[in-house]
């Protein structure tokens, strides 16, 4: 794979420029473009109050003010919001893993009449704009007395999600039926086959679902905005709005807080990179 001999030959040298250098230059430029807003986020988060108002803006903080991070965390009950976000993400993740594993099994490993039609209906719901149910769901949850609790944010996760179901089903379709057929001949029931044979095999797909569910819950804005009314319950998405309400808030604190919100997702990505890519790629609906 190594191109150590390219200098010996002009043709391959030219080829190296077109296949090795040009794509790299383009890719680096693209990555730079995508990284610029985040570069600015970090740079701004480290500027002192006088440097913030310097014009033209400085491209690198002259004297990084790390205190901004402490101030940002103290400006709002950051830790509380952070923990609330973690609780919501954990609840949604548990719900997603439990429900979608069972549902996807029913949609892929048992042959029954109407299964595929029902599954296509489930997939079609992905394209329905979610806000359509917004008003009515709020009223339903209000009647249940669930407003200002985490129930409207977590309970629905226990009833499956079309995208997650789809991911696990795609995965299960690729697993041979030999083992489950043998177990069936030995008299094992469907629940037994599910829990003893298929569930352990499902782990990679479940990891993908868990990660997507956690990220989605962490990033969710509209639902917590509607359902939560007291500050003690706010996740970071809503808690961060306190910075907005304050008109004179320094950009530096806002950016410090944004950095702190973004970091957990990046850490998650670094640890579970493989699963993110797999999830998206399976998620590409075939033809």
């Amino acid at each position: 794979m190594h191109t150590s001999s390219f200098t010996a030959n002009r043709v391959s040298a030219k080829r190296y420029v077109t296949t090795g250098i040009v794509p790299r230059v383009i890719l680096v430029l693209m990555c730079t473009l995508f990284a610029l807003p985040f570069y600015w986020m970090i740079v701004t988060s480290l500027k002192g109050s006088t440097e913030l108002t310097v014009f033209p803006p400085t491209l690198w903080p002259r004297d990084p003010v790390w205190r901004n991070y402490r101030d940002a965390v103290l400006f709002i009950p950051f830790l509380r919001f952070f923990m609330n976000s973690v609780i919501l993400a954990a609840g949604a993740t548990i719900g997603a893993v439990l429900s979608n594993s069972v549902i996807a099994y029913g949609f892929s490993r048992i042959p029954w009449k109407g299964r595929d039609i029902l599954f296509y209906i489930a997939i079609a719901t992905v394209f329905i704009p979610f806000p359509i149910t917004l008003v009515a769901l709020f009223d339903i949850f209000a009647r249940l007395g669930w407003i200002n609790t985490y129930l409207p944010l977590i309970v629905p996760a226990f009833f499956g999600n079309a995208f997650h179901m789809f991911l696990i089903r795609q995965f299960l379709m690729g697993i041979s039926h030999d083992l489950s057929d043998a177990a069936r001949i030995d008299g094992a029931g469907e629940l037994m086959i599910f829990s003893r044979i298929i569930l352990p095999l499902m782990k990679p797909a479940l990891a993908v679902v868990a990660i997507f569910a956690a990220v989605n819950a962490w990033n969710d804005f509209l639902s917590p905005l509607i359902y939560l009314q007291t500050q003690e319950l706010y996740p970071l998405s809503i808690g961060l709005q306190f910075f907005r309400a304050e008109h004179n808030i320094a950009f530096s604190l806002l950016m410090a807080a944004s950095t702190l919100v973004v970091i957990p997702i990046i850490v998650l990505f670094i640890f579970f990179q493989r699963y993110f890519v797999e999830g998206i790629t399976i998620g590409a609906i075939k033809g």
């Binding site: 995508f34 600015w40 803006p57 990220v215 990033n219 944004s258 973004v262």
Partner: peptide, 29 residues
Amino acid sequence: RALLYVPSILPIFALSFVWVVFSNPRYGL
């Protein structure tokens, strides 16, 4: 691939704040 993909999983509520600062006519990059 990772660098180009990561921004897509970051929360839009935080990216919106970043955008305000990034695109500010006077102090934005």
